[in-house]
Amino acid sequence: MTARGEARLWLAQRAAGILLALAVAVHLATILYAVHRGLSAAAILARTRGNAAWLAFYLVFAAAAALHGGIGLRTVIREATAWRDRSLDLATAAFIVLATLAGWRAAAALFA
């Protein structure tokens, strides 16, 4: 990959990391709140169904996690193994897309 491509990946991973720091904090606070209040699954769904704000939050959260994790995984593989060519970049892209879609499916299930 070109230096420009690498630098972009690096920036994207940092940006996704910043988003994640915020999103994880909100996510944890939500879990603590739900446990504290003893909310049932039905009670939680009642709050998230049809709520566009929660949907948007989890769509962004899932995409950021997939991006951050995917780029990081690529780095780890490049460092620890001899797999460094274009096929790794394609596998990384596939991983990010699949992980994002999986996350979005879960977010959609909370919404609808």
Binding site: M1, T2, A3, R4, G5, E6, A7, W10, T75, R78, E79
Partner: peptide, 13 residues
């Protein structure tokens, strides 16, 4: 120089 030092073999590693 920036092109030479950016990337996986450079500062980003």
């Amino acid at each position: 120089r920036l092109r030479a030092v950016a990337g996986d073999a450079g500062c980003h590693a």
